[in-house]
Amino acid sequence: MIKKSVSLLLLALVVSLSFGQNATLKGVVKFKGEAPKPRLISMKADRQCDAMHGGKPVEAEDVVVNQNGTLKWVFVYVKEGVKGKYNPPAEPVVLDQQGCWYHPHVFGIMVGQKLEVRNSDPLLHNIHAMPKKNKPFNIGQPVKGMKSYYTFTVPEVMVPFKCDVHPWMSAYAGVLDHPFFSVTGDKGEFEIKNLPPGTYTIEAWHAKLGTQVQTITVKAGETKTIEFTFERKK
């Protein structure tokens, strides 16, 4: 029994390797110029939120420049050139509300994939999504541990989320009908795997600094490295 499954697994691996001559796209998003002073959020008016942060203000995630001079929370995705249909993964994307804050601030999700919005705070949050192409929703989660689920029906970059109870809370979802997207983290890096050979338009989106576009061509099995650089507007 075990043998059989192991051999099946091996077979699957071989098959995927032989057909998986797909490319990988990776790189970093750099920030040019002096990093702006982060906007400070004080949660004074909501005593419960304030207490969770020990009464200290929290830095807003509008423009987060990492230690290595890269930019966090950039949504990098394939804008044009994807052919074929991709089924959404079964596991949901989680948007957590904790400490009166959204985690993560920016994320990607596929059309038809479940979005799980979770309340980890013992107080009211409402998830107010204001998409333009999808159906907007607005739902309250008055107690800790509540979960609500959504799926998006059409691609849309980006869908803004807001908590009206705590107006400083904001998050963005990039809704796509394919899995080729990535969000930069603490090192400013992104990686899009399994990209079939071809020519693509890649866009990097940032909530405050706008978008940038590059056109690339990848060959089978190639690992291509590209770079985006954002600058402060004005």
Partner: peptide, 8 residues
């Protein structure tokens, strides 16, 4: 100015 929820 204290934005909504950020000041008493």
């Amino acid at each position: 100015v204290f934005p909504a929820g950020q000041g008493i």
